[in-house]
Structure formats: C-alpha cells, structure tokens
Amino acid sequence: MTPPRDDDVLAPDWRGVRLHVVSGKGGTGKTTVAAALALALAHGGRKVLVVEVEGRQGLSQIYDVPPLPYAERKVATAPGGGEVFALAIDPEEALLEYLEMFYNLRRAGTALRRMGAIDFATTIAPGVRDVLLTGKAKEAVRRKSGNKHVYDAVVMDAPPTGRIARFLNVNSEVAGLARTGPIRSQADAVMEVIASSLTAVHLVTLLEEMPVQETTDAVDELTASKLPVGGIVVNQMRRPLLAATAQAKARKGKLDKDAIAHDLATSGVVTPNGALVGSHGGVLVDDVVRALAVEGAEHAERVALEQRERDNLEVLHRPTYELPFLADGVDVGTLYELADLLREQGMA
C-alpha cells in the first residue's frame, strides 16, 4: 500500500511510471537530478534503484560512496524508511551475463574478454551495447519477489539529449543486426517497457539557448520515435535580484547612480572622504557605483534571456519543475533538499 502523502505536497504527475529516464545536455546536471529524483521517489518507505550507463561513476560521487561495482548497492536512506540502491551498468559484464542467460556461455565469455572480443563486438555493433544497457534497466523494472516488484521505481541516468532517442529506440538500432533470435527478442522486450506508459523520459536543461534548443530537439526526436516524453527539469535557477522596473532601467543603462551612491553611504560602507570602507587602495564610491551599474545591466540582460528561454520551453507543453542554483555545489545534504523540491512540485 502506498503511504499517504503530506498535505502540502502535490499529487505526483507520474503515477504508474516505473522507469524514469533522465537525460540532458552535458553540464546541465542530469546526474544530480537523477540522484535527487531517486531520493524523492523513495520517500515514505519505497525502494528505488538508480542506474548509470556511461561509466563515469557520477552517482558514487554525488551520494559520496565508493565507486559502484556491477552490483546493486544501497547508497542512501530516504525519509520514512525508503531505500535507494545504485548500479553502474558495465557493458562487458552485461554481455557476459547475457551470454550466460541465453547461451550458457559464461566461461566462454570470460575467454572472449581476454581476447578483447567483447570490446570488438560492442564497438562494431553499438546497437547491441545499448540493448545490453537498457535491458538491465528493463529487467530491474520487471523483477519480482513473489507477487511484488523488487523495486517500486527505477531511475536511469541516461546519455545526453543528443543521442537519447537513438539510445532508447533499440529496435531500430538492431534492425540491421538481428531480425530474429535472442538479441532481437531482448530488444523487443526492452521496447515493451520503454515505449509504454511504464516509462517517462525526463529532460534536464538550463535557461540558456543551447540547452533549451537541445531539449526541444530531444522532445521532437522522442515524439517521432513514439517514446514517452516526461517532464522538463529547469536546473540551476537564479532568481531576479532587481524589481521589474529596475531591471528595465538596468538593461537600458539608466539605473539611478545617485540612488546607488546614497544606498552605499547609508549602509555604512563609505568613509567621510568618499572611499570604500576597508579598501587599501582608496577605492572611490564613484568607481563602485559604475561597477555596480554594469553588473546590474548584465544581470538584467541575463534575466531577460532566461525569460525568453522559459517561453521557448512553455511551447513544449510539458510539466516543468525548477531547481535552484547552488553556489556551494551539491553534497549529500543538498541532494535531500533537491529531492524535497521535486516532491513539492509533484514530480515524485
């Protein structure tokens, strides 16, 4: 039975989704979002698996645990007794597991690894590699103990938006490699999950031109491939520091410099001779005012740019969630705060 939700938390937008795929342009923080989403989904006693497929060990760094092996390890506890497990999917180990499962060739697979044949196979047939990676996530989604799923949800820290549709659409990737047989059967089984209502592909972006454009392109590609587009997470949000009227003046270079100087004086940071308190070089208030006016103009221009990109995202008509810019970076403590924000906005 699902535990009751707090009254101040929205009903989740993705009820029924069991595989949450998280993608985004490099540098947007998709791994951080995947880790926070796993914690959010585990809230209230649920058991969640978060997997990475790129071999970067990004999850281990964020959760502050040793490098992840090709095995499911507990990495965090969520409020209410929930548990987060993590797995770094290694293509080589996944292939050996595949050979044992379908051909009983584990020992032969070990010999192939010594010969370098596994690297050769996954290099010349990258579609097979993607089948192995997505297949492991699919297996975790379907896995049961008795009549109950082992995991309430699975989160995948997926490849960047530039190749997410190709990565997930494994049927088309293996079409020229295998029309029948175990590889094709595995691809079909993967697509039964990924192309269904059990899956949502969430996209992480910043309010910048290139990330927003890649997000738009990814939505188009996923839609064309008939893959389920999820929500959009706008990461590293910065709140405007100026009122709307002041922002308009700042963009035009018309901030009231006398008012800025007056505020500096009344705040006690200016000496009687018009220098900045504590400045060894005798920095004058006029210099500071000019510098602040320039910073104000740059900030106002940034705010206007972000609003234009926000408008571009609204055209996509997808649920949107916002996470703040964290000046001190992300640690385990702030990861829980991000998870709470995702829950408050209804993502989990």
Rank of each mutant, 00 (worst) to 15 (best):
M1Y: 06
M1I: 15
P3E: 11
R15Q: 13
R18N: 04
S23R: 07
A35H: 03
A42S: 05
G44Y: 05
V48F: 06
E52A: 03
G55A: 07
P66S: 08
P66L: 02
P66I: 12
Y70G: 12
K74E: 13
A76H: 11
T77H: 13
P79Y: 06
P79A: 02
E83G: 02
L87V: 08
A88C: 09
D90E: 14
P91A: 04
E93P: 13
A94D: 12
L99T: 05
E100K: 12
F102S: 06
Y103I: 03
N104H: 03
R107S: 07
I118M: 03
T122Q: 03
L132P: 08
A137S: 15
K144Q: 15
A165F: 05
F167T: 10
F167S: 00
L168G: 03
S172M: 00
E173C: 09
T180K: 07
P182V: 10
E192G: 11
S196W: 12
S196G: 05
A200Q: 04
H202I: 09
V204Q: 08
D217R: 10
K226E: 14
R239N: 09
L241W: 05
A244I: 08
T245C: 01
K252V: 07
D258H: 11
A259G: 04
D263H: 14
G268K: 12
V269E: 01
T271M: 10
G278A: 00
G281E: 06
L284W: 02
D286P: 06
D287E: 14
V289N: 00
A293V: 02
E295H: 09
A297E: 11
E301M: 07
A304M: 09
N312M: 05
H317C: 14
P319Q: 11
D328K: 07
D340Y: 10
